[in-house]
Design a protein around this nucleic acid. Sequence first.
RNA 1: CGGGGCGUAGCGUAGCCCGGUAUCGCGCCUGCUUUGGGAGCAGGAGGUCGCCGGUUCGAAUCCGGCCGCCCCGACCA
Length: 489
Amino acid sequence: MSDDKKLTTRAENFSDWYNELVLRAELADYSPVRGCMVIRPHGYGVWERMQRALDDMFKATGHVNAYFPLFIPESFLSKEAQHVEGFAPECAVVTHGGGKQLEERLVVRPTSETIIYSMFAKWVQSYRDLPLLYNQWANVVRWEMRTRLFLRTMEFLWQEGHTAHATHDEAEAETRRMLGVYRDFMEGWMAMPVITGQKTESEKFAGALRTYACEAMMQDNKALQAGTSHNLGQNFAKAFDLTFQNEQGQQDYAWNTSWGVSTRMIGGLVMTHGDDSGLRLPPRLTPIQMVIVPIWKTDEERAATIEVAKRIAEELGSYKRPDHERIRVHVDDRIGIKPGAKYYHWELRGIPLRLEIGPRDLAANSGMLARRDTREKRSISLDALRTELPAILDTIQADMLAAARARLEANTIRERISYDRFKEVMDGPGAFVYAGWNGDPAVEARVKEETKATIRVIPDAEFRSSEAPTTCMVTGEPAKYEVVWARSY
RNA sequence: CGGGGCGUAGCGUAGCCCGGUAUCGCGCCUGCUUUGGGAGCAGGAGGUCGCCGGUUCGAAUCCGGCCGCCCCGACCA
C-alpha cells in the first residue's frame, strides 16, 4: 500500500482515521471472509511481543499453559443456563464432517469454560489437586453482526486463563490478582492507563458471579474494555460436576475463575497513541525499536553508510547481549528511495526511534537520532548508542504513559453534573464521568437508551473520588455506588 | 436484521443522466540521472468495468435479480 497520501486526521473523522491507519501501517487487512481479518507481520509482531510479556507474567504468578480443542459438543454449552443464553446466538456451529451429518453438532468455541471445566472434573478428586492454574493461547469465534479491525472481528486471538480453587476467597483473590496483572501489562507495556473495577449485573460475563475489567480511554474519549477477569463462583463446577473432597472429607464444588485479553488490545494501542502522522508504538511492544536510514550521494558513501548501519544493528541486536540490553534494529537500505520517503514510511508504522547516518555524520562518528513520539531530533555519538539507547527507550516508554494519563485525566469529569449536562457531554466531546448511581438496573438501561453511555465499571477504591457522590445523577435518590459512565467500543 | 453509501488495474478515481469496450493520479517494471523530509525524465506492464440475466446491431452506461464491502443503529472482548 502506498505511503504517499496524508491520513484522514483524527479530528476530521476518528473512525476513518483508525481504519486507514490500521491498513496503511500494515497491521492488518480485510480478508476474503466477511468479518475476519488478516493480521500482517507488523501487527502480528506487536501481538507476539504482547504474548511474550503476558506469558512471562502468567508463569511468574504460577500458571501453566495447555491447549483444549477448538470444537465443543453443543450440549456442553447448554449446561450452564446463563452461559448458553449469552453465547448461543453468536456461535458458529459445525453440522457436517467427512461428508456426513454429525450425530452431535459441534460449536466452534466462543470461549472455553465448558470444555475446560469438563476436563478439570476428570482431573480433580481432592483438595490436594487444587488449585489448577491454567492458561491457553487460542483463537475463538463469535458471529458478530458488525465488525471492526482488531476491535471486533468474528475470529480473534486471545489468551484465556481458567482456574479452579477450593474456596470462594481463593478464587476471588485469583480474579483480582489477574486483573492486576492485566493492569500492570497495559500500563507498563502498552503505556495505556486503565481504570479497574467491577462490572454491573447487566455487563458481567454470562455465567459469572462477578466480572472485573480494565477500561481504557481512547482519543475520541470512548472507553475500550481491554481485559476482563471473572469470578465464576461454583456455576460451572455445578454444571460439569467439578467436585473435590475437602479437608473435612466432604464433597464440595470447586470455585472457578476465567480471565482474558485479546488482539483487541492492538486496537487500543492504535487509538491510545496514534497521531495524524500514523502509529506510535511503545518501545517495549514494537517489533522494531530503531530504524537506521543511511544517506549517501556516491556509491562509496552508500557502501560506507550501509556498512556502518549494519554493523550497529548487529551489535545492538546481538543475541549475545543480555536481553534487557538488546535493541531491535532495522536498517532501511533500500536503494532508489529518498531519505524523506523513508522517514514517512517508518513514522506511519510507529517505530519509536530513527537514526540517520550520512557522510557528514560518518566523518564525525555520529548520527541524528529522532524520536517518533515527540519528534525531537538530536545528534548522538555512534559509540554512545550502546550505552544510551536503553535509557532513551525507557524514557519514551515512560513519556508515552504520562501523555496518555494526562489525556485520560483531562477528559475525566468528577464534579457533580446534572443529567442534562451529562447528555450534552456524551453527545459532544465525550468523557469518563464519575457520578453517583442508585444501583437500579432500570436507570442504567434508561441512560444507555438516551445517551448510548453505559456504566463502564464501579471503580476500585484508588480511582474513586476523594468525596463520594451522595446522590444518583439521574434520579437524585441516594447513591449506592460511585460509577464511571462513558460511551464505549 | 433496519437505515445510509459504495463496487471500474494493487490503491484512489473519471466516464453512467444523453449506449459505440475505458480517463487521470499514485503505486509497479526497465533505463539513466538522483538521495540530509514524500525525486526527475523516458519507455513499459497491468482491467471478463462485482456476478447473473434481459433490452439492443452494440452495455461500464438502460432494466431486473443476486452478491460483497464500508458507515450508522440493535448485539458484543
